[in-house]
């Protein structure tokens, strides 16, 4: 009977003030979607870091003038070096094929490049991924005429990670601002609900209803709205994955650098967002009531 009473009070409470309820849920959903996006980006960046940093290569590009014996000599030197785990020679033709494969979505770019416009290179896997700079310093300099330049992929990737990190922080800031607005709406909704039920509350307190019994319907109203907001945010994230990540930007995410956002991470957002929304709403509701319904 008690559970039924509390539940019907919650639904009646939300319905009585339906415009405010909608505003509260929408604001909360936007905030939670932003929070979810931020978390997904964060997970994405750390996944990508893990993935790439263990596979990082240093590329040593040769000049056009470098002769095959000179390149072979450098290769022998690389293989003998304790800093190097593995060194693989890539000819101009192989480089061109890889380029064609990588940018097959952009035929104009492929057509513009000639087969000998890409340099031959050594793809070097460092023994210690964190020590790639030593290899660059050792082979990249002082070999004018043979080595054009040596590039650490880490530098290229870190740019991308910075962009992701920036997006993640922006989403987090938006989530916090929206979240504050949502919490103010929660507090306001509960005040309105407490006011419209002030007769009931006064009598409940007079006849000795326990504090939790008086407060539960209001707190649950907030929690309910929070969970609905989390469901909407979760659906938004699913929509974003289906229509934006896997839709509009499909080619971008399928290119070499960006790993697609896995469904498991998206699904993981629901319990996280619902938990956060429910807890924070409950605390806000309870704190509001402490000031509203004094014992």
């Amino acid at each position: 009977m008690r559970a039924k009473y509390v539940l019907s009070e919650v639904l009646v409470g939300l319905w009585r003030n339906v415009t405010m309820t909608i505003a509260m849920i929408v604001t909360m959903a936007v905030s939670l979607a932003m929070l979810g996006a931020s978390l997904l980006l964060y997970m994405q960046v750390s996944d990508m870091e893990d993935y790439y940093y263990t596979r990082l290569e240093v590329s040593i590009f040769f000049t056009k003038e470098a002769t095959q014996p000179q390149m072979d000599a450098l290769g022998a030197e690389l293989r003998a070096d304790p800093l190097v785990a593995e060194a693989k020679f890539e000819t101009k033709d192989e480089a061109y094929k890889r380029f064609q494969e990588m940018f097959k979505e952009a035929p104009d770019l492929v057509n513009a490049a000639k087969s000998d416009s890409l340099p031959a290179s050594y793809r070097v896997k460092p023994a210690d991924p964190n020590n790639s700079q030593a290899i660059i310093d050792k082979y990249g300099k002082g070999r004018q005429g043979i080595v054009a330049n040596a590039v650490d992929q880490r530098k290229v990737l870190s740019k991308i990670f910075e962009i992701f990190g920036g997006m993640q922080k922006l989403a987090l800031v938006l989530a916090i601002v929206q979240g504050l607005a949502a919490l103010l709406l929660v507090a306001n909704t509960i005040q309105v609900a407490a006011f419209s039920k002030r007769r009931e509350v006064a009598i409940m307190k007079l006849v000795g209803a326990s504090n939790w019994f008086v407060q539960a319907p209001f707190v649950l109203e907030a929690v309910f709205a929070g969970v609905i907001g989390a469901i909407l945010a979760y659906l938004t994230l699913i929509g974003a994955k289906v229509f934006i990540i896997d839709g509009t930007f499909k080619s971008l995410f399928q290119s070499t650098v960006l790993a697609p956002i896995p469904w498991s991470n998206v699904h993981l957002m629901f319990p996280i967002l619902a938990g956060i929304a429910g807890t924070v709403s409950a605390i806000t509701g309870w704190v509001t009531l402490r000031f509203q319904i004094k014992v």
């Binding site: 009598i203 007079l206 006849v207 000795g208 209803a209 326990s210």
Partner: peptide, 17 residues
């Protein structure tokens, strides 16, 4: 709350729902 259960109270304005 438990204490108030041992009391009953009526008012001038009835305070009915």
């Amino acid at each position: 709350p438990a204490f108030r259960r041992s009391l009953g109270c009526v008012f001038q304005d009835f305070r009915l729902l």
